[in-house]
């Protein structure tokens, strides 16, 4: 009897939680990967999530990007209910999707819809790297294609913010074919005079870089964004030499003639508005 009581007590011994050990309450402060300084998260949000000290462009979620780009209250989402299936019956895929849905509060790695920029109507797609690294499977391909078709039908421009590790492995060849699917839609749109602006944000690689992201009428990028076809590690292993520090950055691509401009986030909306104005596609508010 006595022994039992003693054991019970032992069971309930308390261990200090990890939370108490933390100096910075989660969410209030953010550490800048650029200059390692600790910034108030609120302050960071006020400056378009750009570090005021070093200019590092922190990753933006799709909702933040839409808020930062479109006129307030103008966004109308398309195909929000579309979700992935598991076409190859890939082990663990459904669980990973569910996990990322919870984490990001998104159904998939891209948010599409229509909104206005300084009053100009535009179809828009924004990829979100928090969801399966922004990878493109059937749903991402389909939503982007539908957004292009929406722009085509409404005779409005199409703008995309890319952020993606490339094609989604778990959907195999179907992911690869999404590159072709979005391309056939873009070609139709383009043949009818549709305006397509691609803005590559960190990171834009693999199958996304090697399809719609690179073939905008205008190819823009955010400063220091990683953009490329093959991964840095794979290239280093293949050619057995070290790569320059700025390899595959937006600035590197600009230097090699692959981009029209690198645009600071604070100037993004203004620049997009300017391009839309020159193409004379003013929609109604």
């Amino acid at each position: 009897m006595l022994k039992d009581l003693f054991n019970k007590k032992k069971k309930y011994a308390t261990v200090p939680s990890d939370k108490i050990k933390q100096d910075v309450p989660e969410g209030i402060m953010t550490k800048c990967p650029g200059c390692k300084s600790i910034i108030y998260t609120k302050e960071l949000e006020k400056s378009h999530k750009v570090c005021v000290k070093c200019g590092y462009h922190h990753q933006m979620s799709a909702p933040e990007r839409l808020k930062n780009t479109l006129d307030q209250g103008s966004f109308r989402e398309l195909d929000a209910e579309m979700i992935s299936e598991n076409p190859l019956s890939f082990p663990g895929y459904v669980e990973r999707l569910e996990k990322d849905q919870k984490k990001s509060s998104l159904n998939e790695a891209v948010v599409t819809g229509e909104g206005t920029i300084d009053g100009y109507r535009t179809a828009i797609a924004v990829m979100d790297a928090r969801f399966r690294m922004g990878s493109m499977g059937s749903v991402v391909g389909e939503k982007i294609t539908r957004a292009i078709e929406h722009a085509h039908k409404e005779k409005i421009p199409f703008i995309i913010f890319t952020a993606s590790g490339g094609a989604r492995m778990q959907e195999g060849v179907l992911s690869l074919m999404q590159m072709a699917k979005s391309s056939v839609a873009l070609k139709r749109f383009s043949n009818d005079g549709g305006l397509f602006i691609s803005i590559m944000t960190h990171p834009t690689t693999g199958g996304v870089s090697a399809s719609f992201a690179s073939v905008g009428d205008f190819n823009f990028a955010e400063p220091k964004a990683l953009i490329g076809f093959a991964g840095r590690r794979i290239i280093e292993q293949t050619i057995r030499e070290d790569l320059p520090e700025d390899f595959q950055t937006a600035e590197f691509l600009l230097h090699h003639g692959q981009l029209d401009r690198v645009i600071h986030r604070a100037d993004m909306k203004k620049t997009l508005s300017q391009v839309l104005m020159i193409h004379g596609n003013r929609g109604e508010k």
Binding site: P63, L66, F75, E77, A80, E81, M82, I83, S84, E85, P87, Q101, S104, S105, L106, N107, V111, G137, S138, V139, G141, E142, T145, E171, L174, M177, Q178, A180, K181, V184, A185
Partner: peptide
């Protein structure tokens, strides 16, 4: 245009 598999949910968890 027709390559890919997807489905729809009735309630959106996102925006």
């Amino acid at each position: 245009r027709n390559i890919g598999q997807y489905t729809f949910v009735t309630d959106t968890i996102g925006l």
